[in-house]
Amino acid sequence: MISLESKNLGKWFGPRKIFEEIDFSLPDKGSLVITGKNGSGKTTLLKILCGLIRPTQGQVLIRHDGKNLTTDESRNLFGLVMPDLELYAELTALENLSFLSRIRGVIPAPEDLKKIITRVGLEGRENDFVFSYSSGMKQRLKYAFALFHEPDILLLDEPTANLDDEGIELAEEIISLQKEKGVLIIATNRKEDFEYGDKILQLGS
């Protein structure tokens, strides 16, 4: 059983305050939608939650069966899709997934790689270099990266950005499945996505 708690989180970039006193708690199978105008700190908050950047104040607590986890212990629990995250352009989709899986500590089976590539709709293009991908295909590959290790906590920043109708359906299916198996946090301003959150956090208000 995974849970995530934000305690009094605050972030400043130099003298500029982005947000402060962010408190929420998400149990297993809990979901949160973060919304707010541009620059309100949605992406920054997601980065803090998964340990990419440090908060100026407060802390994030990740618990597994009641035990607090360290950053090292919780690293493999997160799956993240966000515009700030780019895959290696000079590698193919398969090479990207294989490398990132190996440094997580798992040597992936070829059939598992093929399965995830098919799931995100990139079959037939898995051996192409990522620099030849369109922005929508890159977004699909980011989903493959985020889901390949079956994360307990899925963080999505603008989950449908750059996706076509079929891609949006895929994203919605992934979101629905994650709600049933773990923690889900979405940063978005798209009204249709608000329904996925058990709670809604408005930043910059």
Binding site: K47, G51, L52, R75, E86, L87, Y88, I103
Partner: peptide, 16 residues
């Protein structure tokens, strides 16, 4: 510069 630094942070320990 290629914005891939976050991939490494998400998947590997600093020592690695």
């Amino acid at each position: 510069e290629s914005k891939t630094v976050n991939l490494l942070k998400l998947t590997a320990s600093p020592g690695t």
